[in-house]
Design a protein around this nucleic acid. Sequence first.
DNA 1: GACGAGTTGTAGAACGTTCTCCATATAACG
DNA 2: CGTTATATGGAGAACGTTCTACAACTCGTC
Lengths: 353, 353
Amino acid sequence: MSVEEKQKPQRNDRVTIRTVAAHAGVSVAAVSKVMRNAYGVSDALRARVMDAIEALAYRPSRAARGLRGRSFTIGVLLIDIRNPFLPEVIAGVNGVLAPSHYQAMIGVSDARVQLETSLIESMIDYKMDGLILVAPRLPSEILAKFAVQIPIVAVGYHDANATAFDTINADDQRGAEIAVEALLACGYRDIEMLSLGERQGHAVSVVRQREIGFRRAMQRGGLGSSPAIGKIPIASPKREEAMRKFLSRKDRPRAVFCWSDLDAITLLSLAMEMGVRVPEDLAVIGYDNSSTAALGLVNLASIDQSGRELGQIATRTLISRIEGRTAAEHIFQIPSLVSRNSLIRSGNSKNTR
Amino acid sequence: MSVEEKQKPQRNDRVTIRTVAAHAGVSVAAVSKVMRNAYGVSDALRARVMDAIEALAYRPSRAARGLRGRSFTIGVLLIDIRNPFLPEVIAGVNGVLAPSHYQAMIGVSDARVQLETSLIESMIDYKMDGLILVAPRLPSEILAKFAVQIPIVAVGYHDANATAFDTINADDQRGAEIAVEALLACGYRDIEMLSLGERQGHAVSVVRQREIGFRRAMQRGGLGSSPAIGKIPIASPKREEAMRKFLSRKDRPRAVFCWSDLDAITLLSLAMEMGVRVPEDLAVIGYDNSSTAALGLVNLASIDQSGRELGQIATRTLISRIEGRTAAEHIFQIPSLVSRNSLIRSGNSKNTR
DNA sequence: GACGAGTTGTAGAACGTTCTCCATATAACG
DNA sequence: CGTTATATGGAGAACGTTCTACAACTCGTC
């Protein structure tokens, strides 16, 4: 009687691990072992279970998995989805994950610390197996605190002293240096950097790193002890305003290095509107080598840091940490310059290749 | 003795609902009630529990929630993260969700049906509360099958007969008509459309809808019974090749309507390289009114469908479905034209505002 | 033929919630 | 005072996995 009643409550149609076990005539634990390919299953048993899984189209519940063990999901946190650099990183992550049984879930923080925190917490609450944070805003101590709860890899976050989490970066200081060196090689001496407005980013941010590299290269080139760095606000009306002001300055420099293609492209656009010729009146180098920069219409010279590659490396690093590594890793990629017409015109006005 | 032992196993540091209950001196069920603000809690109890939650910084485990009830998460599935239209939709979704206790998790399918399916299944397995699918590739029957398991809203998917899920669309047929009408109004008669290569998209896709609108408007304008629609491959080497071929055609039309800004902008770029003047030799209208189109450098006329608004509406619609609505809703937004220099030059070459 | 060492399978207790009853206390009413 | 309604709190069974013990069996080996 009571046994009868125990069998019955199969009311719902969801195929669970129990359904599979019954169908294969084995225990629940056996099925679980096969799923996780754990130690101690004979080939015969494995085959029988696999058949049942196939036949019933069984999918383990991620929610239930998360409750007890791992969820085979990794979380990716993006600061901002508009910057074309970020999609590249995602592409890299997905590329590495595709053949594995892991999957990526993405959260977008819109650069708001509050939202960033709550998304990280949510991902932890989902028992995700690890996190890739792209250019997080949170200070290192907080990240370290999260890192004891979940494996973390930070991309675009310069803290080579972090012991609790890994960092994957392009060498942003070097990238800025390369830009300055290229401008110097073209004969420019009158160089400024356009960086991101005050509030944004702390010392570990890519922006600040690029400023450091810029200063160093300028000093090394003998161009003064405190080279000029302009700040461009991030939000839209003030942003264009600041750029116009820069462009119409009497003492406008002959060359400018922008912290991001995003700004460089808008600058190019405004320059055209205001009749400032590029590169004759103003040479421009951007950062990220986004697809828009490569357009013949835009033709913006830019520092290339392969976002895709960064994403791939970050993913591999995270997986190795999930699988047990505890010593922190800090990886650097060396960026390179892609020269285009905004730096030096190549013969006619056509795109070089 | 046995009571003692029951208290002890607090080995781990995670704050669970039990910790809160103990701290507040109430039952687990009471805390749960407060969390879900369910019926049957006095103000006094609520206050006490809230204090405990505050004091312990308690966060309910989403994994555990998912196992039993709802997870307060909605899944967003993007076909492709590179198209600048998608980030807008996300912004809309996040905007609506921010003040609520829901959160969005995003998956990227890279337009691969296989991956799309497995991401949807994963989201179901996570017991997410609902799904927003943006321009899904899956056929309607499959979507309907998923929709019995989880509330679904599809954006950019034209199936007004679907009964199992909701659809939110800009009226893509109308958008294409508007483009054609604008070209006609400018005096052009020699008009073609550049659409997306064969394989991509079925009848319900936005691309096909735009083709239908294009044809209708052309016929209505008295321009032949089967107006020309060129197909541009999506992948990179062939894509540019096809555009160059179009641009160098002897019988190239005087005006072209592109299914997406993505293609229109590349076309503009190649036109410049090949010495085809825009709009004198060729007028171009794109679709999506992306931020790149608005750049002075690009100055591409485009059909505007507010992705942000679409995202907002989709989210509200989904929530109403989660909360019990069962009748399907199919919502249409009317797009509009943003005229720029690629359609008709405004006085000097500067950007209009 | 008894005894360790492997190997293969199973029982059943977690994991942290939700949610359906139930029990109790209080109020309302004749 | 009973009796009935209503409001409030609690016990405890799910939910679908993982994973630790442990049982059962097969081999050598002395």
